[in-house]
Design a binder for these strands. Structure first.
Ligand SMILES: [Mn+2]
Ligand SMILES: [Mn+2]
Ligand SMILES: [Mn+2]
Ligand SMILES: [Mn+2]
Lengths: 226, 226
DNA sequence: ATAATTTTTTAATCTCACCTAAACAATAAC
DNA sequence: GTTATTGTTTAGGTGAGATTAAAAAATTAT
Protein backbone atom coordinates (compact mmCIF):
# COMPACT_ATOMS: atom_id res chain seq x y z
CA UNK A 1 0.00 0.00 0.00
CA UNK A 2 3.10 2.20 -0.27
CA UNK A 3 1.70 4.18 -3.24
CA UNK A 4 5.03 5.97 -3.72
CA UNK A 5 5.48 8.17 -6.77
CA UNK A 6 8.37 7.58 -9.18
CA UNK A 7 10.57 10.27 -10.70
CA UNK A 8 9.06 9.69 -14.11
CA UNK A 9 5.56 9.90 -12.70
CA UNK A 10 6.33 13.19 -10.96
CA UNK A 11 7.63 14.61 -14.23
CA UNK A 12 4.44 13.59 -15.99
CA UNK A 13 2.18 15.04 -13.31
CA UNK A 14 4.08 18.32 -13.38
CA UNK A 15 3.82 18.64 -17.15
CA UNK A 16 0.13 17.69 -17.18
CA UNK A 17 -0.51 20.30 -14.49
CA UNK A 18 1.05 23.05 -16.56
CA UNK A 19 -0.64 22.03 -19.81
CA UNK A 20 -3.97 21.70 -18.11
CA UNK A 21 -3.68 25.24 -16.73
CA UNK A 22 -2.97 26.53 -20.23
CA UNK A 23 -5.43 24.52 -22.29
CA UNK A 24 -7.87 22.97 -19.85
CA UNK A 25 -6.70 19.49 -20.83
CA UNK A 26 -3.31 17.93 -21.57
CA UNK A 27 -3.18 16.23 -24.95
CA UNK A 28 -1.07 13.19 -25.51
CA UNK A 29 1.14 14.99 -27.99
CA UNK A 30 1.73 18.07 -25.89
CA UNK A 31 2.86 15.88 -23.00
CA UNK A 32 5.11 13.89 -25.31
CA UNK A 33 6.78 17.05 -26.61
CA UNK A 34 7.47 18.53 -23.20
CA UNK A 35 8.92 15.29 -21.90
CA UNK A 36 10.77 14.47 -25.12
CA UNK A 37 9.11 11.07 -25.23
CA UNK A 38 7.01 9.33 -27.88
CA UNK A 39 3.20 9.50 -27.86
CA UNK A 40 3.15 5.74 -27.32
CA UNK A 41 5.12 6.14 -24.10
CA UNK A 42 2.67 8.81 -22.96
CA UNK A 43 -0.33 6.57 -23.55
CA UNK A 44 1.29 3.91 -21.41
CA UNK A 45 2.06 6.25 -18.56
CA UNK A 46 -1.39 7.86 -18.64
CA UNK A 47 -2.95 4.44 -18.18
CA UNK A 48 -0.69 3.92 -15.19
CA UNK A 49 -1.42 7.32 -13.68
CA UNK A 50 -5.14 6.78 -14.22
CA UNK A 51 -4.97 3.44 -12.42
CA UNK A 52 -3.29 5.23 -9.53
CA UNK A 53 -6.10 7.79 -9.66
CA UNK A 54 -3.79 10.72 -10.18
CA UNK A 55 -5.21 11.59 -13.60
CA UNK A 56 -8.45 11.06 -15.44
CA UNK A 57 -7.74 9.88 -18.92
CA UNK A 58 -10.32 9.88 -21.68
CA UNK A 59 -9.13 7.90 -24.67
CA UNK A 60 -8.27 10.09 -27.68
CA UNK A 61 -9.09 13.22 -25.64
CA UNK A 62 -6.35 13.80 -23.12
CA UNK A 63 -5.69 13.86 -19.40
CA UNK A 64 -6.72 15.99 -16.44
CA UNK A 65 -5.30 15.71 -12.93
CA UNK A 66 -7.36 14.48 -10.01
CA UNK A 67 -7.19 16.42 -6.75
CA UNK A 68 -4.59 13.96 -5.50
CA UNK A 69 -2.57 14.25 -8.72
CA UNK A 70 -2.68 18.02 -8.48
CA UNK A 71 -1.41 17.84 -4.93
CA UNK A 72 1.63 15.85 -6.06
CA UNK A 73 2.27 18.12 -9.04
CA UNK A 74 2.16 21.29 -6.95
CA UNK A 75 4.43 19.77 -4.33
CA UNK A 76 6.95 18.92 -7.05
CA UNK A 77 6.74 22.43 -8.48
CA UNK A 78 7.26 23.84 -4.99
CA UNK A 79 10.40 21.78 -4.56
CA UNK A 80 11.64 22.67 -8.04
CA UNK A 81 11.34 26.38 -7.42
CA UNK A 82 12.79 26.25 -3.92
CA UNK A 83 15.84 24.41 -5.24
CA UNK A 84 16.18 27.01 -7.99
CA UNK A 85 16.30 29.71 -5.32
CA UNK A 86 18.94 27.71 -3.50
CA UNK A 87 21.03 27.34 -6.63
CA UNK A 88 20.93 31.05 -7.47
CA UNK A 89 21.02 32.60 -4.00
CA UNK A 90 23.37 30.20 -2.29
CA UNK A 91 25.42 28.47 -4.97
CA UNK A 92 25.59 31.57 -7.19
CA UNK A 93 24.45 29.88 -10.37
CA UNK A 94 23.16 32.14 -13.11
CA UNK A 95 19.39 32.00 -13.62
CA UNK A 96 19.80 30.33 -16.99
CA UNK A 97 21.68 27.35 -15.51
CA UNK A 98 19.45 26.22 -12.67
CA UNK A 99 16.59 24.49 -14.43
CA UNK A 100 18.47 21.33 -15.35
CA UNK A 101 19.61 20.72 -11.79
CA UNK A 102 16.27 21.62 -10.22
CA UNK A 103 14.70 19.09 -12.57
CA UNK A 104 16.64 16.42 -10.65
CA UNK A 105 16.58 17.92 -7.16
CA UNK A 106 12.79 18.35 -7.23
CA UNK A 107 12.42 14.59 -6.80
CA UNK A 108 14.32 14.48 -3.52
CA UNK A 109 13.03 14.97 -0.01
CA UNK A 110 9.79 14.60 1.89
CA UNK A 111 7.55 17.27 3.42
CA UNK A 112 9.84 17.80 6.41
CA UNK A 113 12.86 18.19 4.12
CA UNK A 114 11.03 20.72 1.98
CA UNK A 115 9.95 22.81 4.94
CA UNK A 116 13.54 22.90 6.21
CA UNK A 117 14.75 24.00 2.81
CA UNK A 118 12.03 26.64 2.64
CA UNK A 119 12.93 28.01 6.08
CA UNK A 120 16.63 28.03 5.25
CA UNK A 121 15.94 30.07 2.11
CA UNK A 122 13.79 32.53 4.06
CA UNK A 123 10.45 31.34 2.66
CA UNK A 124 10.87 32.97 -0.75
CA UNK A 125 7.69 33.97 -2.60
CA UNK A 126 9.06 33.54 -6.10
CA UNK A 127 11.78 31.59 -7.88
CA UNK A 128 14.65 33.21 -9.84
CA UNK A 129 12.40 33.52 -12.90
CA UNK A 130 9.65 35.32 -11.02
CA UNK A 131 7.41 32.26 -10.82
CA UNK A 132 5.42 32.01 -7.58
CA UNK A 133 6.39 29.28 -5.10
CA UNK A 134 3.37 27.39 -3.72
CA UNK A 135 3.24 27.23 0.07
CA UNK A 136 3.35 24.04 2.12
CA UNK A 137 -0.41 23.58 1.65
CA UNK A 138 -0.14 23.89 -2.11
CA UNK A 139 -1.69 27.33 -2.21
CA UNK A 140 -0.15 30.30 -3.95
CA UNK A 141 -1.08 33.66 -5.29
CA UNK A 142 0.11 34.69 -8.70
CA UNK A 143 0.83 38.38 -9.00
CA UNK A 144 -2.40 39.53 -10.60
CA UNK A 145 -0.94 42.85 -11.66
CA UNK A 146 1.59 41.19 -13.94
CA UNK A 147 1.03 41.50 -17.69
CA UNK A 148 3.00 40.67 -20.83
CA UNK A 149 5.42 43.41 -21.82
CA UNK A 150 3.85 43.38 -25.30
CA UNK A 151 0.66 44.84 -23.78
CA UNK A 152 2.30 48.13 -22.75
CA UNK A 153 1.62 51.61 -24.09
CA UNK A 154 3.79 54.64 -24.53
CA UNK A 155 4.93 56.50 -21.40
CA UNK A 156 3.99 53.66 -19.07
CA UNK A 157 6.48 52.91 -16.32
CA UNK A 158 6.88 49.33 -15.26
CA UNK A 159 9.02 46.83 -13.40
CA UNK A 160 10.18 43.51 -14.82
CA UNK A 161 8.66 40.75 -12.66
CA UNK A 162 9.10 37.52 -14.55
CA UNK A 163 9.61 35.58 -17.74
CA UNK A 164 7.10 33.31 -19.41
CA UNK A 165 9.94 31.35 -21.02
CA UNK A 166 12.79 30.04 -18.87
CA UNK A 167 14.87 28.57 -21.69
CA UNK A 168 18.51 29.45 -21.21
CA UNK A 169 18.95 31.06 -24.61
CA UNK A 170 16.23 33.57 -23.79
CA UNK A 171 17.59 34.22 -20.30
CA UNK A 172 21.09 34.70 -21.66
CA UNK A 173 19.71 37.18 -24.16
CA UNK A 174 18.12 39.13 -21.31
CA UNK A 175 21.51 39.15 -19.55
CA UNK A 176 23.06 40.57 -22.71
CA UNK A 177 20.41 43.31 -22.72
CA UNK A 178 21.04 43.88 -19.01
CA UNK A 179 17.42 43.15 -18.22
CA UNK A 180 16.77 41.49 -14.87
CA UNK A 181 13.90 41.04 -12.43
CA UNK A 182 13.11 44.17 -10.44
CA UNK A 183 14.50 46.61 -13.00
CA UNK A 184 12.27 49.57 -13.95
CA UNK A 185 11.76 50.94 -17.46
CA UNK A 186 9.62 53.43 -19.28
CA UNK A 187 8.04 52.85 -22.68
CA UNK A 188 9.38 55.47 -25.09
CA UNK A 189 7.96 54.11 -28.30
CA UNK A 190 6.43 51.15 -30.07
CA UNK A 191 6.95 50.32 -33.75
CA UNK A 192 4.07 48.47 -35.40
CA UNK A 193 6.27 47.62 -38.39
CA UNK A 194 8.09 44.81 -36.57
CA UNK A 195 6.41 44.99 -33.16
CA UNK A 196 9.58 46.25 -31.54
CA UNK A 197 9.86 48.70 -28.66
CA UNK A 198 12.04 51.47 -27.38
CA UNK A 199 12.40 51.63 -23.61
CA UNK A 200 14.53 53.69 -21.30
CA UNK A 201 15.97 52.46 -18.04
CA UNK A 202 16.28 54.37 -14.78
CA UNK A 203 19.55 55.99 -15.89
CA UNK A 204 17.87 57.32 -19.01
CA UNK A 205 19.71 54.84 -21.23
CA UNK A 206 17.44 53.82 -24.06
CA UNK A 207 17.30 50.34 -25.53
CA UNK A 208 15.41 48.56 -28.30
CA UNK A 209 13.44 45.44 -27.53
CA UNK A 210 12.22 42.99 -30.14
CA UNK A 211 8.67 41.71 -30.31
CA UNK A 212 9.96 38.26 -29.37
CA UNK A 213 11.57 39.51 -26.18
CA UNK A 214 8.66 41.72 -25.11
CA UNK A 215 6.27 38.83 -25.69
CA UNK A 216 7.99 36.69 -23.09
CA UNK A 217 8.63 39.29 -20.41
CA UNK A 218 6.19 39.74 -17.54
CA UNK A 219 5.98 43.22 -16.07
CA UNK A 220 4.07 45.17 -13.45
CA UNK A 221 2.89 48.73 -14.06
CA UNK A 222 4.11 51.39 -11.65
CA UNK A 223 2.19 54.36 -10.40
CA UNK A 224 2.67 57.34 -12.69
CA UNK A 225 5.82 59.03 -11.43
CA UNK A 226 9.47 58.52 -12.01
CA UNK B 1 29.94 7.08 -26.59
CA UNK B 2 28.07 8.95 -23.90
CA UNK B 3 29.64 6.83 -21.11
CA UNK B 4 27.44 8.38 -18.45
CA UNK B 5 27.23 6.68 -15.07
CA UNK B 6 23.87 5.57 -13.68
CA UNK B 7 22.73 5.97 -10.09
CA UNK B 8 22.94 2.26 -9.50
CA UNK B 9 26.43 2.12 -10.96
CA UNK B 10 27.59 4.95 -8.70
CA UNK B 11 26.23 3.08 -5.70
CA UNK B 12 28.12 -0.04 -6.72
CA UNK B 13 31.37 1.84 -7.31
CA UNK B 14 31.11 3.55 -3.94
CA UNK B 15 30.52 0.27 -2.11
CA UNK B 16 33.31 -1.51 -3.96
CA UNK B 17 35.64 1.35 -3.11
CA UNK B 18 34.95 1.03 0.60
CA UNK B 19 35.16 -2.77 0.66
CA UNK B 20 38.35 -2.72 -1.33
CA UNK B 21 39.94 -0.33 1.16
CA UNK B 22 39.01 -2.69 3.98
CA UNK B 23 39.80 -6.06 2.46
CA UNK B 24 41.88 -5.38 -0.65
CA UNK B 25 39.15 -6.83 -2.83
CA UNK B 26 35.36 -6.61 -2.86
CA UNK B 27 33.70 -10.01 -2.79
CA UNK B 28 30.42 -10.59 -4.52
CA UNK B 29 28.65 -11.34 -1.27
CA UNK B 30 29.96 -8.31 0.61
CA UNK B 31 28.77 -6.03 -2.18
CA UNK B 32 25.38 -7.76 -2.21
CA UNK B 33 24.94 -7.25 1.53
CA UNK B 34 25.80 -3.55 1.50
CA UNK B 35 23.49 -2.86 -1.41
CA UNK B 36 20.74 -5.17 -0.19
CA UNK B 37 20.74 -7.00 -3.48
CA UNK B 38 21.19 -10.65 -4.39
CA UNK B 39 24.58 -12.09 -5.38
CA UNK B 40 23.14 -12.78 -8.83
CA UNK B 41 22.39 -9.09 -9.33
CA UNK B 42 25.94 -8.25 -8.27
CA UNK B 43 27.45 -10.63 -10.80
CA UNK B 44 25.44 -8.96 -13.51
CA UNK B 45 26.46 -5.46 -12.54
CA UNK B 46 30.12 -6.41 -12.14
CA UNK B 47 30.13 -7.69 -15.72
CA UNK B 48 28.69 -4.35 -16.80
CA UNK B 49 31.14 -2.28 -14.76
CA UNK B 50 34.01 -4.40 -16.08
CA UNK B 51 32.88 -3.80 -19.66
CA UNK B 52 32.92 -0.07 -18.91
CA UNK B 53 36.42 -0.52 -17.49
CA UNK B 54 35.51 0.85 -14.09
CA UNK B 55 36.28 -2.41 -12.27
CA UNK B 56 38.43 -5.45 -12.86
CA UNK B 57 36.44 -8.54 -12.16
CA UNK B 58 38.01 -11.96 -11.70
CA UNK B 59 35.38 -14.68 -11.71
CA UNK B 60 34.85 -16.27 -8.30
CA UNK B 61 37.39 -13.86 -6.77
CA UNK B 62 35.87 -10.41 -6.59
CA UNK B 63 36.22 -6.92 -7.96
CA UNK B 64 38.76 -4.12 -7.75
CA UNK B 65 38.26 -0.60 -9.10
CA UNK B 66 40.26 0.71 -12.03
CA UNK B 67 41.77 4.19 -11.74
CA UNK B 68 38.77 5.57 -13.61
CA UNK B 69 36.34 3.67 -11.38
CA UNK B 70 38.09 4.96 -8.30
CA UNK B 71 37.79 8.51 -9.60
CA UNK B 72 34.04 8.13 -9.94
CA UNK B 73 33.69 6.49 -6.52
CA UNK B 74 35.66 9.21 -4.75
CA UNK B 75 33.71 11.94 -6.51
CA UNK B 76 30.47 10.34 -5.36
CA UNK B 77 31.75 10.06 -1.79
CA UNK B 78 32.81 13.70 -1.94
CA UNK B 79 29.33 14.74 -3.00
CA UNK B 80 27.70 12.50 -0.39
CA UNK B 81 29.70 14.04 2.43
CA UNK B 82 29.30 17.61 1.23
CA UNK B 83 25.53 17.16 1.05
CA UNK B 84 25.58 15.72 4.58
CA UNK B 85 27.31 18.88 5.77
CA UNK B 86 24.67 20.93 4.00
CA UNK B 87 21.86 18.99 5.62
CA UNK B 88 23.27 19.34 9.13
CA UNK B 89 24.76 22.83 8.98
CA UNK B 90 22.17 24.54 6.84
CA UNK B 91 18.96 22.56 7.07
CA UNK B 92 19.51 21.65 10.75
CA UNK B 93 18.95 17.94 10.35
CA UNK B 94 20.28 15.71 13.11
CA UNK B 95 23.35 13.69 12.17
CA UNK B 96 21.39 10.45 12.29
CA UNK B 97 18.92 11.60 9.63
CA UNK B 98 21.16 12.78 6.82
CA UNK B 99 22.47 9.59 5.30
CA UNK B 100 19.26 8.60 3.53
CA UNK B 101 18.96 11.95 1.78
CA UNK B 102 22.66 12.19 0.95
CA UNK B 103 22.35 8.76 -0.64
CA UNK B 104 20.08 10.40 -3.22
CA UNK B 105 21.68 13.83 -3.45
CA UNK B 106 25.14 12.35 -4.11
CA UNK B 107 24.01 11.43 -7.63
CA UNK B 108 23.20 15.00 -8.60
CA UNK B 109 25.47 17.65 -10.07
CA UNK B 110 28.66 17.83 -12.10
CA UNK B 111 32.12 19.03 -11.10
CA UNK B 112 31.16 22.71 -11.29
CA UNK B 113 28.08 22.12 -9.14
CA UNK B 114 30.14 20.29 -6.55
CA UNK B 115 32.74 23.05 -6.34
CA UNK B 116 30.00 25.62 -5.81
CA UNK B 117 28.49 23.53 -3.06
CA UNK B 118 31.91 23.06 -1.48
CA UNK B 119 32.61 26.80 -1.55
CA UNK B 120 29.18 27.60 -0.15
CA UNK B 121 29.78 25.24 2.76
CA UNK B 122 33.18 26.77 3.45
CA UNK B 123 35.22 23.85 2.11
CA UNK B 124 34.62 21.57 5.09
CA UNK B 125 37.31 18.97 5.85
CA UNK B 126 34.99 16.38 7.36
CA UNK B 127 31.34 15.39 7.23
CA UNK B 128 28.99 15.34 10.26
CA UNK B 129 30.26 11.87 11.20
CA UNK B 130 33.90 12.90 11.16
CA UNK B 131 34.64 11.26 7.82
CA UNK B 132 37.12 13.17 5.65
CA UNK B 133 35.80 14.89 2.52
CA UNK B 134 38.01 14.28 -0.53
CA UNK B 135 39.09 17.46 -2.32
CA UNK B 136 38.19 18.31 -5.92
CA UNK B 137 41.15 16.23 -7.17
CA UNK B 138 40.02 13.21 -5.21
CA UNK B 139 42.81 13.51 -2.67
CA UNK B 140 42.24 13.53 1.05
CA UNK B 141 44.09 12.99 4.28
CA UNK B 142 42.56 10.83 6.93
CA UNK B 143 43.40 11.95 10.43
CA UNK B 144 46.27 9.61 11.18
CA UNK B 145 46.09 10.25 14.91
CA UNK B 146 42.60 8.83 15.14
CA UNK B 147 42.20 5.45 16.87
CA UNK B 148 39.30 3.30 18.04
CA UNK B 149 38.08 4.23 21.52
CA UNK B 150 38.50 0.60 22.52
CA UNK B 151 42.28 1.02 22.21
CA UNK B 152 42.52 3.54 25.05
CA UNK B 153 44.20 3.12 28.41
CA UNK B 154 43.45 4.51 31.82
CA UNK B 155 44.07 8.22 32.40
CA UNK B 156 44.34 9.02 28.73
CA UNK B 157 42.60 12.20 27.64
CA UNK B 158 41.05 12.23 24.20
CA UNK B 159 38.63 13.98 21.88
CA UNK B 160 35.86 12.24 19.95
CA UNK B 161 36.60 12.69 16.25
CA UNK B 162 34.34 10.30 14.39
CA UNK B 163 32.26 7.16 14.24
CA UNK B 164 33.03 4.01 12.30
CA UNK B 165 29.32 3.22 12.09
CA UNK B 166 26.88 5.85 10.85
CA UNK B 167 23.71 3.84 11.39
CA UNK B 168 21.04 5.99 12.97
CA UNK B 169 20.40 3.71 15.94
CA UNK B 170 24.04 4.06 16.96
CA UNK B 171 24.07 7.82 16.41
CA UNK B 172 20.87 8.23 18.41
CA UNK B 173 22.43 6.23 21.20
CA UNK B 174 25.39 8.60 21.21
CA UNK B 175 22.94 11.51 21.43
CA UNK B 176 21.34 9.85 24.45
CA UNK B 177 24.79 9.55 26.05
CA UNK B 178 25.47 13.18 25.13
CA UNK B 179 28.52 12.18 23.14
CA UNK B 180 29.29 14.33 20.11
CA UNK B 181 32.24 15.11 17.89
CA UNK B 182 34.77 17.43 19.49
CA UNK B 183 33.90 16.49 23.06
CA UNK B 184 36.80 15.63 25.37
CA UNK B 185 36.88 12.80 27.89
CA UNK B 186 39.31 11.08 30.21
CA UNK B 187 39.54 7.32 30.69
CA UNK B 188 38.81 6.56 34.34
CA UNK B 189 38.60 2.80 34.15
CA UNK B 190 38.23 -0.23 31.93
CA UNK B 191 36.48 -3.46 32.93
CA UNK B 192 37.76 -6.59 31.23
CA UNK B 193 34.70 -8.53 32.39
CA UNK B 194 32.42 -7.03 29.73
CA UNK B 195 34.85 -4.70 27.94
CA UNK B 196 33.06 -1.64 29.25
CA UNK B 197 34.61 1.69 30.21
CA UNK B 198 34.22 4.49 32.64
CA UNK B 199 34.99 7.94 31.30
CA UNK B 200 34.63 11.41 32.67
CA UNK B 201 33.73 14.44 30.65
CA UNK B 202 35.12 17.96 30.99
CA UNK B 203 32.67 18.79 33.78
CA UNK B 204 33.84 15.80 35.77
CA UNK B 205 30.61 13.90 35.10
CA UNK B 206 31.42 10.24 34.79
CA UNK B 207 29.70 7.89 32.39
CA UNK B 208 29.82 4.21 31.51
CA UNK B 209 30.44 3.15 27.96
CA UNK B 210 29.79 -0.32 26.63
CA UNK B 211 32.28 -2.30 24.58
CA UNK B 212 29.97 -1.95 21.56
CA UNK B 213 29.94 1.82 21.76
CA UNK B 214 33.68 2.21 22.36
CA UNK B 215 34.39 -0.11 19.45
CA UNK B 216 32.71 2.20 16.99
CA UNK B 217 33.93 5.55 18.28
CA UNK B 218 37.01 7.16 16.76
CA UNK B 219 39.03 9.38 19.06
CA UNK B 220 42.20 11.44 19.06
CA UNK B 221 44.56 11.47 22.03
CA UNK B 222 45.25 14.82 23.65
CA UNK B 223 48.50 15.99 25.12
CA UNK B 224 48.68 15.08 28.78
CA UNK B 225 46.95 17.98 30.53
CA UNK B 226 43.40 18.76 31.35
C1' DA C 1 -20.07 12.83 -47.67
C1' DT C 2 -15.88 11.20 -48.77
C1' DA C 3 -11.04 11.55 -48.68
C1' DA C 4 -6.74 13.12 -46.61
C1' DT C 5 -4.37 14.26 -42.58
C1' DT C 6 -3.35 14.28 -37.86
C1' DT C 7 -3.52 12.21 -33.39
C1' DT C 8 -3.81 8.38 -30.43
C1' DT C 9 -3.61 3.67 -29.36
C1' DT C 10 -1.96 -1.08 -29.90
C1' DA C 11 1.44 -4.56 -30.61
C1' DA C 12 5.83 -6.16 -30.50
C1' DT C 13 10.58 -5.19 -28.68
C1' DC C 14 14.24 -3.16 -26.08
C1' DT C 15 17.20 -1.91 -21.95
C1' DC C 16 18.11 -1.69 -17.22
C1' DA C 17 18.25 -3.46 -12.89
C1' DC C 18 16.55 -6.59 -10.30
C1' DC C 19 14.74 -11.56 -8.72
C1' DT C 20 14.65 -17.05 -7.78
C1' DA C 21 16.36 -21.46 -8.47
C1' DA C 22 19.70 -24.49 -10.20
C1' DA C 23 24.42 -25.46 -11.59
C1' DC C 24 29.00 -24.93 -10.69
C1' DA C 25 33.65 -23.51 -8.27
C1' DA C 26 36.36 -22.83 -4.43
C1' DT C 27 37.17 -23.74 0.45
C1' DA C 28 36.95 -26.22 4.59
C1' DA C 29 36.19 -30.53 7.19
C1' DC C 30 37.15 -35.01 8.08
C1' DG D 1 41.70 -36.98 -0.92
C1' DT D 2 36.89 -37.41 -0.82
C1' DT D 3 32.95 -35.01 1.16
C1' DA D 4 30.39 -31.15 2.86
C1' DT D 5 29.85 -26.35 2.93
C1' DT D 6 29.99 -21.87 1.23
C1' DG D 7 30.28 -18.53 -2.43
C1' DT D 8 29.54 -17.39 -7.33
C1' DT D 9 27.68 -17.75 -11.71
C1' DT D 10 24.18 -19.14 -15.11
C1' DA D 11 19.56 -19.57 -16.73
C1' DG D 12 15.17 -18.01 -16.96
C1' DG D 13 11.90 -14.34 -15.68
C1' DT D 14 9.73 -9.83 -13.88
C1' DG D 15 8.55 -4.91 -14.04
C1' DA D 16 9.26 -0.12 -15.23
C1' DG D 17 9.78 2.79 -18.74
C1' DA D 18 11.07 3.46 -23.03
C1' DT D 19 11.08 2.53 -28.47
C1' DT D 20 9.27 1.68 -33.59
C1' DA D 21 5.81 0.47 -36.73
C1' DA D 22 1.17 -0.53 -37.77
C1' DA D 23 -3.82 0.00 -36.82
C1' DA D 24 -7.59 2.82 -35.47
C1' DA D 25 -9.97 6.99 -34.25
C1' DA D 26 -10.65 11.90 -34.62
C1' DT D 27 -10.20 15.96 -37.21
C1' DT D 28 -9.79 18.74 -41.31
C1' DA D 29 -10.12 19.51 -46.23
C1' DT D 30 -12.33 19.05 -50.50
MN1 LIG E 1 12.24 16.34 -12.88
MN1 LIG F 1 11.92 28.58 -12.53
MN1 LIG G 1 23.28 6.67 -3.51
MN1 LIG H 1 28.70 10.55 6.70
Amino acid sequence: MKNTVSISQENYLKVIFKLQNEHGIASNQSIAEKLEATPAAVTGMLRKLASLEWVEHTAYQGAVLTAKGQRIAISTIRKHRLWEVFLVDKLKFKWDAVHQWAEELEHIGDADFTERLDAFLGCPATDPHGDPIPDANGDWTGNERVIGADKLSREQIFTVRGVSNSASDFLQHLDALNIHLGKRFEVLDHFPFDGSWEWSDENGESLRISREVAGQLLVELSKKEK
